[in-house]
């Protein structure tokens, strides 16, 4: 088990304006899972992703990441968790515009105190893996959306995270690039990476091995796809 939530609640506001974004969510993500969080807007899937990503704290309940309860960690420890154990892929890529592809991928490694030489070597390997060997010196503005998202995936892998969290990773891409990114994520999963992805796209949800439907801050249904597991 990589991450587990127990009776997870997130409440915003108080009194009459109180809103329960999450209402007692119990979810377990095992090593090697490729899980899709699906549901209508406002159902709480992004809030759940923030909780899993140690970016927000629960109002009630527990989140256990590799046996550590995130709710009990201080801000500095949560930062370390995000740096060393989690990798983020954003819908709008969120690359640093003034850094080239190589430097963007090196950034989390530099934050982790890895030497420049080692970080550069690893960043080059990761960019090669995502098919951007020829684009290492390009700035984000000089790359297509698909290329930028591949740089973001390489950056998410920089510190060998236990869990990759992807928030609508194909939401800003055309169908051709969406397909490439999805293939890349599937390949990573086949190599043993654990991925949790938020998506609106039912076609993408069909290509993962677990789908979690959310409604009104609760898990409505858990579906296990066998097609992808078999093809792997």
């Amino acid at each position: 088990m990589i991450i587990q939530t127990k009776n997870l609640w997130k409440t915003y506001g108080s009194g009459d304006t109180q809103v329960n974004a999450l209402r007692g969510v119990d979810l377990t993500v095992n090593k090697g899972d490729f899980l899709a969080l699906v549901g209508p807007s406002g159902c709480g899937k992004s809030t759940l992703l923030h909780m899993l990503g140690a970016m927000d704290t629960p109002s009630r309940g527990e989140i256990m990441l590799e046996g550590r309860e995130l709710g009990k960690l201080g801000e500095g420890q949560l930062t370390d968790v995000r740096l060393e154990r989690l990798g983020f892929i954003f819908q709008t890529f969120n690359l640093v515009p003034t850094l080239n592809a190589l430097e963007n991928v090196m950034l989390p490694m530099k934050f982790a105190g890895i030497s420049r030489r080692e970080a550069k070597q690893k960043a080059l390997c990761l960019l090669d893996m995502v098919g951007l060997k020829e684009r290492t010196r390009h700035l984000p503005a000089q790359m297509s959306g698909g290329q930028r998202q591949r740089v973001a995936i390489a950056r998410a892998l920089a510190n060998d995270p236990a869990l990759i969290l992807a928030d609508e990773p194909t939401g800003n891409l055309d169908s051709e690039n969406s397909e490439k990114i999805m293939e890349l994520l599937q390949n990573l999963n086949r190599k043993g990476r654990t991925i949790v992805m938020v998506t609106h796209n039912p076609e993408l949800a069909e290509r993962v091995n677990r789908v979690v439907y959310m409604k009104d801050g609760q898990l409505a249904e858990l579906q296990r796809n066998t097609k992808d597991i078999q093809s792997a």
Partner: peptide, 8 residues
């Protein structure tokens, strides 16, 4: 983003 990816 920098904080999300682990900048202290």
């Amino acid at each position: 983003t920098l904080k999300a990816i682990g900048a202290s």
